[in-house]
Design a protein around this nucleic acid. Structure first.
Lengths: 126, 126
DNA sequence: TTTTCATATGAACAGTCATTCATATGAGGT
DNA sequence: ACCTCATATGAATGACTGTTCATATGAAAA
């Protein structure tokens, strides 16, 4: 991400609409936080982990086995999810159990999956 | 993305749970499509464009002006949104007007924004 | 305390992607 | 036909990020 050099020698065609919409937009900060949430959900591995945890609490090596991925990878991605406060964990001896820590997330992911299944045939083209 | 070299000399601690959950998971293809949807939503510029179009149909240079970004950038990102079938457009003379082409998207984005505002104080740490 | 096992973490690499700059397209007006 | 204006597109690039490999941490068992 870089700084925008305030371009905008752009011709405005509908100043009234622009002004009106400008006032109604979400704050910059909200957009940024929302974007980073979606960014986190926008990865196969992480989505799989979330789907997994949606079904049951589970420990790291179980997730790794279930998804057929390395322990290291799962652990790395879990730390991403942890930092975003999307999962929480519980330690029991040497084993660490993870759970989803956010009701909203389940809803959003569910919506995403539903959207996909309903928009059906429409693949993206190259 | 690379091929996984079928690691999994991983110790499985809870085989029963693993087997059960494995059956309940969404199909690989669904996960992938959902992830790419979230990936597209996981970008500031694109989220801003979507928020903008949520308020009103708008042409490219209006969006560029409104968001204080270059016409080229907006055009590029609109093409991403077009390929994902999230927006549609209508031509009128030299001007091209864009609209959201997906009811679900609005809902999902709305959910994202709500989630953010409700999880309030919790910033992510470095 | 030493060993073992589950998990975490750091560094490095490869691939991806957002942005910019320069230029092309294509419709309207003259 | 030419010029203008709105939009699209290609190439280049810098930044970011998912994955791997190697290693560290830290708890329990010996």
């Amino acid at each position: 991400m870089k700084e925008h050099n305030a371009v905008c020698d752009v011709t405005v065609i509908h100043e009234d609409v622009v002004e009106k919409v400008k006032k109604e937009l979400p704050r910059e900060e909200e957009i940024e936080k929302t974007a980073s949430l979606f960014k986190i959900l926008g990865d196969n591995t992480r989505l799989k982990i979330i789907s997994t945890l949606q079904k049951s609490e589970m420990c790291v090596c179980d997730i790794a086995h279930l998804l057929n991925m390395s322990q290291s990878l799962i652990s790395h991605q879990l730390s991403v999810l942890r930092n975003a406060r999307l999962v929480k964990y519980r330690r029991s001896g040497k084993v660490v159990y993870y759970t989803l820590d956010d009701e909203h997330i389940e809803t959003i992911v569910q919506y995403g999956l539903i959207h996909i299944s309903e928009s059906g045939e429409g693949d993206e083209q190259k």
